[in-house]
Design a protein around this nucleic acid. Structure first.
Lengths: 121, 121
DNA sequence: TTGAAAATGACAATCATTTTCATAAGTGGT
DNA sequence: ACCACTTATGAAAATGATTGTCATTTTCAA
């Protein structure tokens, strides 16, 4: 485990959920530490290989990472102003797990977001 | 519905499953028709907006498209080989709707996908 | 026919990600 | 301390998918 990987892990903890490589870079930079994007991609790739982080894709194809095993949450986002609420998705976790199992898929993960217009918009 | 969209649709039929924008371009080109990549991306984007095609992502982030039914559904995708099952998401519809309403959001929509390793991988 | 609006595609721009390569930092042996 | 050797780092260039631009072509109703 090299220095870059450790700094990337800490940044992912701070992020608290999903973060792209670029966002990880911003997080580390804002703390005053200097690190190259290259090292972040390298760290993320090896952490992924070691099953320490998960890789998913945003709708636009950008890769987003998160710590494995960390309980995650979902978002309820206002499609007008961006106001966001974090959602505990107990129901969805079970749904995803059940559906995956029913079709013989293992190691299931999932992504989900809800969009709508918030009360102020 | 413009000419490009129709040609793209036919190419997707021929492909019989998932195809990237570049692959659609190759398919059309091999038939002797000439079409610009730009038009293909445009056609795919508008077809997607009209819920005629689905957009998913290969592991490397490249977008892949295919014809899909008009009913709202979700996907269970093998993160290794891409094998996909369409899921009727009754439970999730209710969950999303309920969560949105509980927080005062209206016009709720949602996105959800499940990833896992299929029985053959 | 004609004129406006939509469609088209060559080309350039953008952006995440990967590759290259030269340098810095660690490691162990003497 | 010194040297030889491996590994880590990051700047810059390369790559490749996707999007933006814009001049040109097509469509089509009046």
């Amino acid at each position: 485990m090299n220095k870059s990987s450790i700094r990337v892990l800490k940044a992912l903890e701070l992020a608290g959920g999903f973060a792209s490589a670029q966002e990880v870079h911003q997080i580390i930079s804002k703390q005053g530490d200097r690190i190259g994007l290259t090292s972040i991609y390298r760290a993320l790739a090896s952490l992924q290989k070691e099953d320490v982080v998960d890789l998913l894709r945003r709708a636009d194809g950008e890769g987003i990472y998160r710590l494995c095993g960390q309980t995650h949450h979902h978002h309820l986002v206002c499609r007008n102003c961006g106001r966001t609420v974090e959602i505990e998705g107990g129901a969805i976790e079970e749904w995803a797990e059940g559906v995956a199992k029913a079709h013989g898929y293992r190691d299931a993960g999932h992504s989900a977001e809800i969009f709508g217009l918030c009360s102020l918009c």
